[in-house]
């Protein structure tokens, strides 16, 4: 390792392996995960094509794709961006603020969903009889949006 001290702020250099093996290993992991994601995508496509698509099954497959994406993100950040070999202080100062996303995603998707429910309920009341009817009329509704 000829890595000279690039800055007085650096106390020690994290160990850089001499081989490119971990890089290629990560490349194959990422490719493999992408191929699984694509096959799940094709499964979802075929479920949608068939009669009466099973909404729960589609949702489960979509959840799986989301988890695989997070795994890919982990490998890119930890290995390609070398965050995994930085000191703990630097890792935490990046990762902890990103936890805000947990609330961010949950709150806003919930908001969108509630928006849909309210619109379906009150548009119906205005159009038809003033009874409480929540069942969305997907076909005609979507056409107006």
């Amino acid at each position: 390792m000829s890595a000279s001290i690039s800055s007085p702020e650096i106390t020690f250099h994290p160990e850089h392996e001499d081989t490119t093996k971990p890089i290629w290993r990560t490349f194959w992991i990422l490719s493999f995960l992408t191929i699984i994601e694509l096959s799940i995508g094709l499964i979802i496509y075929n479920i949608h094509k068939g009669e009466n698509p099973n909404a729960t099954l589609v949702l489960a497959f979509k959840g799986m794709v989301c988890i695989l994406t997070l795994a890919k993100a982990y490998y890119i950040v930890a290995v390609f961006m070398h965050l995994g070999s930085e000191v703990r202080n630097l890792i935490m100062t990046i990762i902890v603020p990103l936890c805000l996303f947990i609330w961010f995603i949950a709150a806003f998707l919930w908001d969108g969903n509630s928006w849909k429910n309210l619109r379906n309920r009150y548009n119906r009341i205005n159009e038809k009889t003033p009874t409480e009817q929540v069942a969305p009329a997907a076909k005609e509704k979507g056409a107006k949006d």
Binding site: L90, T93, I94, P97, L98, L100, F101, F104, I105, F108, L109, D111, G112, N113, W115, K116, R119, N120, P136, A138, K141, G142, D145
Partner: peptide, 27 residues
Amino acid sequence: WYFLMSDAFTFGAFLISYGTIRFSQNH
């Protein structure tokens, strides 16, 4: 790293707002 973190929030905000609108539609 801090720039990338803030950029992640920019992209995150775009994608989440896309998700909100998508969740608010019947189709």
